[in-house]
């Protein structure tokens, strides 16, 4: 079974005023399973918000640890697109982002490590992270998980499972 998780987070969740956008990411591999050295290409669409309300978009490919301890993070691709504002209040942006449809794409070569790992105490996750900064100063993060390598999911020892 292949299951991709999307996690959206408003960094000031308890003060949410701005409507949350919907960000959909499509990967160049349907099963979102990659190996070290593979080329990752992802295409994203931002929906549910006015493009004028956005001041910048950051897209990155990162790995992070998740579990009971402190979080580690590695960034292998990062790009920030600043949407400037002209005097006539129309937006200007770099060519890689269409302001009409709020779409974009990113591509990068994946390293050989660390591989995705579904452990009990710690997990290593790879994801494409899209972060939107609003004119109001708030931001919104959307993470789209993919898998690097093929380490099987850790199962509980039989003793504990019983």
């Amino acid at each position: 079974m292949t299951e991709s998780k999307r996690m959206d987070q408003n960094t000031l969740g308890s003060y949410r005023i701005q409507p949350n956008p919907q960000i959909n990411v499509t990967f160049n591999r349907e099963n979102i399973q990659y190996s070290g050295g593979d080329h990752l290409r992802a295409h994203y669409i931002v929906e549910g918000i006015e493009s004028q309300s956005i001041s910048a978009v950051e897209r990155s490919v990162v790995w992070y640890t998740e579990g009971k301890g402190e979080e580690d993070l590695g960034v292998i691709f990062f790009e920030r697109i600043q949407l400037g504002r002209r005097k006539d209040s129309t937006q200007i942006s770099s060519t890689s982002l269409s302001t009409d449809h709020m779409t974009g794409a990113l591509a990068t070569e994946l390293p050989h490590s660390p591989v995705s790992y579904e452990g009990i105490i710690v997990k290593i996750r790879w994801c494409v992270r899209i972060r939107i900064f609003f004119q109001s100063g708030r931001d919104f993060v959307s993470e789209h998980i993919f898998f690097l390598g093929s380490v099987p999911v850790v199962r509980l020892p039989a003793k504990i499972e019983q």
Partner: peptide, 23 residues
Amino acid sequence: MSTLVFQNPFSTRFVQPGAIPWF
């Protein structure tokens, strides 16, 4: 190959100060 994501809602990233609301 079987790939699954066990997203644990009690991971540090979700329960650390600032991530959880205050009531």
